[in-house]
Each structure stands twice: as C-alpha cells, then as structure tokens.
Simulated assay, not measured.
Amino acid sequence: MNPLDVALEAAYAAGELLREGWRRGGFAVEQKSAQELVTEYDRRCEALIVDILQKTFPAYAILGEEGVAGKGTQAQVRWIIDPLDGTTNFARGYPLFGVSIALERSGEVVVGVVYNPLADECFAAEKGAGAALNQKPIRVASTSSLAAAVVASGFPYDAWTSANDNTDLWRIMVKRALTVRCDGAAALDLCAVACGRFDAYWEHGLAAWDIAAGALIAQEAGALVTDYRGGDAFLRRGEVIAAPAALHAEIVALFG
C-alpha cells in the first residue's frame, strides 16, 4: 500500500478523534513543562496513529512527540508524527490545531500530511510530486519583498529561561514585514506558506515532529525551506525559514 494513503488514513482518523474531543470538552490537561501542555487527546491520537501505521508497515520505526514509538526493524525508514499540532490552542479553545505525519527515508522526508480537522483541510505531499490541499494543487505566493509579506513565527517552549527566545528576530521582522502572526501551530504555519496564506515562516526551538511534514509540503509547493544559515539541516537544528526564493534570500540575509 502507498505510504501516503496510509498517512492520510491515520490523519483523518486522528482528526475525527480531535473533533470529537473538541466538541465534548472537559478533557484532562497536564503541564509537560513551564510553557508546554499535553492533553489526553495528544496521547490517544498518537496511539491511534501508531496503530494504523504499524498495521501496514510494521517494520518502520516511529518517532512520536508523546513517546508512543514503534521499534521497527527498518531504522532507516521512520514515521515522524505530531498527533496534536497546536496543543495549547486545543486546550484553551482556540480553533487552530491539526495532525502532522511524515515519512522519512535515509534522512530525507518523502511523505507529508497535515490535517486541520475543524476546517476539514488536508495538506499532503510526496517528494517530487507537488503539494495539494484537499487534492487540489497548491503553490506559494509570489511575494518578493518583506515590505509586502505576511510572516508567521512563534516562541520556543523555554522562552522563560533561554536568552535565545526569538524576540530579537521578532523585533527585526515587525520593522520590515507588512505584518507578523503567531498562531501556535508550526505544521499549519508551514502549510499556510505552501498555499499562499502566509508569505514566510520562521521559528527555532522546534522538534522534528513539529516541522517534518509541513516542511515537505511547503517545499513541494515551491518554497525554499532551510535552517537559519540557508542550509538543509533544519530538522536536526530545530530551526526553519520557509518562503519563496526571493523573500527567503532577504530573510536569510537579515538573520546572518
């Protein structure tokens, strides 16, 4: 079976569970760290996703945010999953969250799916095959300067204690971009770049599950996706810039 089809099946199933939890309310919320929450639906959705993926690809390794990991024998192939991108939004009733599932082969992400269950929007991509929103092709915006750009970012979970809290780059961006947004859902921010809602996105302090699927979708939609140095180590370094080529060059120059 095609891995993309299985990823879509898992994303839709987890999305339905999230919709159900959102409508019901009253779910348990815990504190993972000073600025990071986890809900019972993070764990339930991850378990559901892992179950679906392992039924078809039992040998594939799994990296999941909540620690429900499959110990597959093919370590060079792994699923990277965030069962609830935007946990704080979900917990506080802010209607922007989703499911993120990526497949990585030998260090290269080759499948990405991000599903927003409230909007019923499913972003998907395969390496070299383009990106789509609900099966319709998408492309990045043609914006070529920060002065005309809507840009998104966020803040790391250790912002209370780390000097590298992203406020310096926000100060740069608010003086140069048309406007800057903070929506609290990295995968969906990358997908917003992919379909032209945002012109660019940057952030650091991220984990692979935050950005793996969204980064591929943005790339396949025409964005340059790199680390702050303009290199391809964004998953390893936990930092990302995603933007059309001309705009990307301007941002990298500012961050250098």
Rank of each mutant, 00 (worst) to 15 (best):
A119I: 06
G222Q: 06
C195Q: 14
N134W: 14
A69Y: 01
S100M: 05
L206M: 13
A149D: 11
A34H: 12
G205S: 10
L4R: 14
R92A: 12
V225S: 02
R92C: 09
W160P: 08
L63M: 08
E126C: 14
S100R: 07
A28Q: 13
A249L: 06
L84A: 02
A125N: 10
N166I: 03
D168S: 09
L216G: 03
F155L: 13
W79H: 11
A212Q: 08
P3L: 08
A129T: 11
Y94D: 14
A223C: 05
E30Q: 04
D189N: 10
G130I: 07
A245K: 00
N134M: 13
K175M: 12
R78L: 10
I138N: 10
A212H: 07
D42P: 03
L103S: 05
R229N: 03
Y201W: 06
A223E: 00
A10P: 00
V140S: 07
V29T: 10
Q76E: 15
L96C: 04
L53S: 05
R237H: 10
A131G: 13
A129N: 15
A242P: 01
E16L: 14
D210S: 12
V193R: 06
R19C: 13
A200I: 04
W170D: 10
R78E: 13
V193T: 01
W79G: 06
V29W: 04
L48N: 01
N166V: 08
Y94S: 14
A253L: 09
N166T: 11
R24H: 08
L146M: 12
R24K: 15
T56G: 00
D199V: 08
Y12H: 12
A200P: 03
G64N: 05
G67L: 03
A208P: 02
T73M: 14
V174I: 15
C45V: 06
G222W: 01
S162W: 09
V38Q: 05
D158R: 09
S153D: 05
C195N: 13
L84I: 06
R237E: 04
A34N: 11
L84M: 05
T87D: 01
G86C: 01
K55F: 00
F155D: 01
P156N: 13
R171S: 12
V151R: 09
L235G: 06
F57T: 03
A221K: 07
A253H: 12
G238H: 07
V252M: 02
A200H: 02
G86V: 07
M173Q: 04
A141N: 08
G112A: 11
G231C: 05
R197C: 04
W209S: 14
A149H: 13
Q219A: 01
R105G: 05
R181E: 15
Y115F: 15
D199L: 07
L235H: 11
G21T: 02
R23T: 05
G98R: 04
A47G: 12
D5G: 11
K127H: 13
A47K: 14
A132F: 15
Y228I: 07
N134R: 13
L18T: 02
Y60E: 02
I49W: 02
G107M: 04
L224E: 01
V109I: 15
V77R: 13
R43N: 03
G70Y: 00
I80R: 07
P83Q: 02
V77I: 12
V113L: 07
I101L: 09
S153M: 15
T143R: 07
